[in-house]
Design a protein around this nucleic acid. Structure first.
Length: 292
DNA sequence: CCCCAGGCAGTTA
DNA sequence: TAACTGCCTGGG
């Protein structure tokens, strides 16, 4: 894991970062506020800030960001302290399926996203599809989030805090096309804003935070696992959705298998890196059109 | 028209 | 605790 960070006023360049593929990172379903824009550049919003990423062979360039934000926010957000080579080497051992998956998913990274936004996003994701999820989240931000400013000709908004969302009516949220999930989101906002669930989830075990997350309305096992992996840095969590279920059945079991068995198998086999394994398998399965 | 989409909650047996 | 079923909504 060798790379250099070069700071300039207008942009920050990371030289020699091998494991960073914007398509694999932003199109794998872990995040919903990143888009390839008209200019062909991936642009996203987090922490009420807008940032762009341009990747070439040698350089990973971040635009619209200063040194302080990069060091305090984005370095961690992009999981840059993590040695992906080491993770891949571990996962490849005695596992030909995983070797193939990693070859396909070279450059995947798991982002460390904000807790509240991740909770709401994955509540919305239940029984839903990605274009609709993104559209709903965008609408919620436009209507109730903080105005950040104009960037690349578009007005940009942050994700609204819990105390804003908890005051909304179900009708307000339903107008953002979240359907029956509206009441879950408002319930989760009250629960979260009352301090019954806070950032301290970072410091408890994955099992513990899983239990606490499931207490939120609209959060079941799968959504809780997603929040664990994508926001709380608990990479041992392995979300089993319908895709992963089909992919695992096809690649490892060769027969229909219960979610519970798949979960146990993955926990055992992939251990602390289960979350990364899930991403590689998911991307590989989608690319190979497994389970369609 | 019907079916389904990166599940959850509520109800049964 | 396992197995069902309904659910907002929009696209195929």
């Amino acid at each position: 894991m060798k790379y250099n960070i070069i700071y300039k006023p207008e942009k920050i360049t990371v030289k020699g970062l091998k494991q960073f593929n914007p398509v694999h990172i932003f199109e794998c379903g872990q995040c919903f506020r990143w888009n390839k824009e008209d200019n062909g550049i991936y642009t996203g919003i987090a922490h009420k800030k807008v940032i762009s990423v341009i990747k070439s062979e040698e350089n990973t360039i971040f635009e619209n960001v200063d040194k302080n934000d990069f060091d305090t926010i984005w370095f961690n957000y992009f999981d840059l302290r993590r040695d992906y080579q080491e993770i891949q080497d571990d996962l490849r051992k005695n596992d030909k399926v995983m070797c193939q998956a990693i070859d396909f998913g070279e450059g995947i990274r798991i982002l460390n996203q904000e807790l509240w936004e991740t909770i709401v996003s994955f509540i919305i994701s239940a029984n839903n599809n990605i274009p609709r999820i993104k559209k709903s989240i965008e609408m919620i931000c436009e209507r109730y989030g903080d105005y950040i400013g104009t960037y690349n000709g578009k007005k940009r908004y942050g994700f609204p805090d819990p105390h804003i969302i908890k005051q909304l009516s179900e009708a307000d949220l339903k107008a953002c096309n979240v359907g029956y999930r509206a009441s879950y989101i408002i319930g989760a906002a009250s629960y979260f804003d009352n301090g019954r669930l806070t950032q301290k989830l970072n410091h408890v075990s994955a099992e513990e935070s899983q239990k606490k997350l499931i207490a939120l309305p609209g959060v079941g096992p799968k959504v809780a696992h997603c929040i664990n992996v994508f926001s709380l840095e608990k990479r041992e969590a392995f979300p089993v959705d319908v895709w992963i279920k089909r992919i695992m059945e096809h690649l490892y079991f060769n027969t229909p298998t219960s979610t519970k068995k798949i979960q146990e198998f993955a926990d055992n086999k992939f251990g602390l890196w289960a979350g990364y394994a899930q991403q590689y398998l998911f991307y590989y399965g989608r690319e190979m059109n497994i389970g369609k």
